[in-house]
Amino acid sequence: MEVGCSRPAHDSVDSAAKPLVEKMEPQKETKPMVRIGKKAPDFAVSAYKDGGFTEVKLFDYLGKWVVLCFYPGDFTFV
């Protein structure tokens, strides 16, 4: 988990600490990351819907409430 109560200091924006981190571990391009109260990272993925295959883009649902659910895999029991 990158985000959550367990590691609140993980994404510290302390500017003094930033260059140090970059030196130790060259950062990849900044990836969009989920933040509470901030815009959800948009995506477009393939999907099975109403008996057919289609592409679903998150921001096509702007204007509606969305519950986005991740789960470990089809045929898992829980």
């Binding site: 988990m1 985000v3 959550g4 989920v34 933040r35 509470i36 109260g37 901030k38 815009k39 959800a40 948009d42 998150l58 921001f59 649902y61 702007l62 204007g63 509606k64 409430w65 969305v66 519950v67 986005l68 659910c69 991740f70 789960y71 470990p72 895999g73 829980v78």
Partner: peptide
């Protein structure tokens, strides 16, 4: 795999809550 995460997104596209 993706673990069990549930995100609530409001009509503006803002993440208002999640549970993992």
């Amino acid at each position: 795999v993706d673990v069990r995460g549930r995100f609530l997104i409001d009509p503006d596209g803002t993440v208002v809550g999640f549970e993992v």
